[in-house]
């Protein structure tokens, strides 16, 4: 059943379904609160998204909605532009990064990371590996010549682990989106946790590296 058309706030004509611009007078409309990040970018929901396509769509959408395009318009139009672009930037940031995207998919699917899923991984083998890496970082003397290379080697190692987690998540999320398999989503949570852990470690590597600059 189609929803009843809503009147455009500016020309008061009918808008059959939520669209960003009125089909009659082309005036910007308020942001549709039901639109998710995939819908905003008009792409198919999924985990393996084409990041080049997202970049390109981001620029096209900015061209349409950016406050610079509404600088001479009425306060209401300027406010709607601000709302659209604020949301667009949030969506862009989320879609760009495998970790934030994974967290978003879980959240949209009703899996909250803090309830029923511990925020740090509990798998003993994983913890052992992680501990070794952390010790390696702690023992690293940043004043030696090879420090930069050692950091790079560690980064490569952790990035490799991230890649493996992302591959695993891709399969689970594919299962979830194609077969509506809620169980796949639940099991993705552990992988997301490990990915988050690796990301934190990479951030720490970055912080150490700054002191070398």
């Amino acid at each position: 059943m189609n929803p009843a058309p809503q009147p455009c706030w500016s020309c008061r004509g009918p808008i059959p379904k939520p669209v960003p611009f009125c089909p009659t007078c082309q005036t910007i409309q308020p942001l549709d609160p039901n639109l998710d990040f995939f819908g905003l970018f008009m792409i198919k929901p999924g985990y393996q998204i084409d990041r080049g396509q997202v970049e390109s769509l981001y620029r096209q959408l900015q061209q349409q909605f950016h406050p610079d395009r509404f600088a001479t318009k009425s306060p209401k139009e300027r406010r709607y532009s601000l709302e659209h672009v604020t949301r667009l930037n949030e969506a862009y940031r989320t879609l760009k990064d495998p970790l934030t995207l994974a967290l978003y998919i879980l959240q949209q699917g009703g899996v909250t990371m803090d309830e029923g899923h511990p925020t740090t991984p509990t798998d003993p083998a994983f913890l052992m590996e992680a501990m070794e890496l952390r010790e390696g970082l702690e023992e690293l003397d940043l004043n030696t010549d090879g420090a930069s290379d050692a950091l790079d080697a560690m980064r490569k190692e952790v990035q490799g682990r991230c890649k493996r987690e992302i591959d695993g998540l891709s399969a689970l999320f594919d299962d979830y989106f194609s077969n509506n398999n809620q169980a796949a989503l639940e099991s993705a949570a552990a992988g997301v946790n490990r990915l988050r852990y690796h990301n934190r470690f990479l951030e720490e590597l970055d912080q150490r590296e700054e002191s070398l600059f």
Binding site: S10, G13, Q26, T27, T72, K73, S74, E77
Partner: peptide, 21 residues
Amino acid sequence: NEAKVDADRVLAASGAALKQD
């Protein structure tokens, strides 16, 4: 200036409405 900006919008909207309907 604020009033004029709004008038421009209203005029454009009315013009579009006439054209369409």
